[in-house]
Computed example of a mutant assay.
Amino acid sequence: MKEVFTMWRHTQMVVLVALSAAIYAAVLIPFKGFVLVPGFTELRPANVFPFVFGLLFGPAGAWGAAIGNLIGDFFGTLGIGSIAGFIGNFFLGLLPYKLWGAFFRRGENMEQNVNSGKKLAVYIAVSVLASAVCAMWIAWGNDVLGFVPFAALASIITVNNAIAGIVLGPILLLLLYPRVKRWGLLWTDIMRPEEVSAPRFKAVGNALAWIGGLGGLIFGLALGLGLYSQGFAAAGFASGGAGSLGIGLGLIPFLLLVIIASFMLGGRDQVEAAEAEEDRVV
């Protein structure tokens, strides 16, 4: 995870944070009127950007997603729940580049594009997991604060994120990757291997991310749907369902698994692969 901090040494990465945040916020704000949960979330096609910027810009994309979402909150949804939104969107941009390298062997082409069947499949899988983790953080935080029941917010955010990422993301990547690569703005071309965490037990970290992300989401939804005596269709969605001690405490182990996985899934192998490819071309 050290690249999340060492990236601030590079002026280009700082500029990419500002660019990612500005684009994300600029597309979020016009859709604030298309409300799904009043005061908390709305229709968000802009959610494609954390996936794409996370892959292309690495930690700069993660910071940009978090900051851009916070800027967007100033236009209708700002509150203490925005802290959970900041964290959730940070992971929405962080996990795509963290998980990307876990699906490729050393020496295999790791370029952050979807120009092959395998890479498209990896992108879709990563998008689903990142969507679930983002939703889990935001829904858990707002449930603990007593604002919105976990099941309502988590299901809406997961679907909202995943649809935007899966439908729009491949198109954007195919259009942007060659240009970003040509301009030398890929995070793997800017940062040096010693500035980036090395992957440790990559397969284990990948497994922990999936257990923590999808496992936590499923566990939270099951707990919410079974905890409130409102019937299956309404359970966890009606007002008054938030603030459950079971969800507040029960999801902590899953959130910790995601954090642990993020430390285990370094990105140094991707930077080294980019350097090796550059040397080969030269």
Rank of each mutant, 00 (worst) to 15 (best):
L249W: 10
L16N: 03
F5L: 15
P199T: 06
L176P: 14
A121Y: 10
A62D: 08
L174E: 03
L78K: 11
W187M: 01
Y24P: 00
L129W: 08
A238C: 07
I23W: 15
T188E: 12
L56G: 08
A203D: 08
V148K: 12
I23H: 15
A234V: 09
A60M: 08
H10V: 14
K32D: 15
G146R: 03
F34L: 14
R9N: 13
T188S: 08
V15T: 12
I87S: 10
V14A: 09
T6F: 03
M1K: 04
P59H: 00
K181R: 09
I80V: 08
M110K: 15
G241W: 13
S116N: 09
R268S: 04
F74M: 13
L173T: 10
F104A: 05
G101Y: 04
A121G: 11
F34G: 01
W210F: 15
R106G: 03
G93R: 10
R44H: 14
L251T: 00
R9E: 12
K119G: 11
F237L: 14
S262C: 08
L175D: 01
E194Q: 09
G76K: 06
L99F: 06
I71H: 10
G212R: 03
V122S: 11
V281M: 13
G58V: 02
P59C: 02
L257V: 04
K98Q: 02
F57C: 12
A198T: 11
G216R: 03
F90I: 11
L214G: 02
I138H: 14
M136V: 07
V258W: 13
F263T: 11
V148F: 13
S20C: 06
G213L: 07
F53N: 01
V27F: 15
I157Y: 01
F150V: 02
E108D: 14
P45N: 02
A235F: 13
A276E: 15
I67Y: 04
Q112D: 09
G205D: 07
E275C: 02
F237V: 13
L43Q: 10
G81T: 00
M110L: 08
A234W: 13
F90Y: 14
I87G: 05
P149H: 09
Y177F: 15
E3N: 08
G241P: 15
G141T: 00
P193M: 00
Y123D: 13
M1E: 04
S127H: 00
T188G: 04
N89T: 11
G88A: 02
A242P: 04
A261R: 03
A209Y: 01
S131F: 12
F75V: 03
M264Q: 08
G231Y: 12
N160H: 06
I138Q: 14
V128A: 12
F34D: 07
V37A: 14
V52P: 01
V17T: 02
H10Q: 06
